[in-house]
Every structure is written in C-alpha cells, then in structure tokens.
C-alpha cells in the first residue's frame, strides 16, 4: 500500500483527536482523544519504518534501517500506559471530589 494512505489515516486520526481534545469537556473523552493522537503518531512511525526498511532492504539484505522508529513506538506505548494510569487515577480522584469529570472544573484547583 502506498505510504500516502497511512499518512492520510494518521492525519485523520490525529485531527479527530485534536478536535476531541478541543471541544469535549469530559475528561475521559479528552483522555481517549489524546490516546488517539498518540496512536496516530505511532501508526505513522510504524508506516515510515516499514517504508525505509523496504527501500534499504533492496541495497542490503541485512539492514536494520527503520528499527529505531519501532523502538520509539514501544516507548510511546509504555509512556502512554503510564500516563493513562496516572491520568485515570487523577480523574477518579476528581470524580470523587466533584462528582463530575468536566475539565472546566479543574481550573478551580488554584483556589
């Protein structure tokens, strides 16, 4: 499949994520949207990794080109998992205190 499709998909997913973050007030939805953006990036990374590998393979069968991008993907997934656990914990705490998961309540933290 041409790389353009991957890029198009990733861009679409990313835009959906951004839109979600911008317009939704529910913390969980926002969270999901952030995940969506992260995964859009992951998708791109994997796609480009494969593309580079494919072009490099023609010249040298033992190439490891593109593997670093896949490493990044794993990093992102690990960090995202950690982030989710912390983020969800915060949301739970927030819900306990305010009985709401509306992010606009969060700006009152300063008081």
């Amino acid at each position: 499949m041409p790389i353009q499709y991957y890029i198009g998909l990733a861009a679409t997913l990313f835009c959906i994520g951004i839109t979600g973050v911008l317009i939704r007030r529910n913390a969980i939805i926002i969270f999901m949207c952030i995940e969506l953006m992260l995964n859009a990036v992951n998708l791109l990374l994997v796609a480009f990794s494969k593309m580079h590998y494919a072009t490099a393979f023609i010249r040298n069968a033992n190439t490891t080109a593109g593997s670093d991008a896949q490493l990044f993907v794993f990093f992102i997934m690990v960090v995202a998992a950690a982030e989710v656990s912390v983020g969800l914990a915060i949301i739970v705490m927030m819900y306990r205190n305010t009985h709401s998961v509306d992010v606009n309540y969060l700006n009152r933290l300063k008081n």
Binding site: I18, V21, L22, V103, N104, L106, N107, K110
Partner: peptide, 13 residues
C-alpha cells in the same frame, strides 16, 4: 494565560 488547557491547545493548533 487563562489556565484553561483547552485554550492552550487551541492556540497551539
């Protein structure tokens, strides 16, 4: 600098 994360992201975008 409103403190609304949404605003910041909006500006970023």
């Amino acid at each position: 600098q409103s403190g609304q994360v949404g605003n910041y992201i909006l500006f970023m975008v």
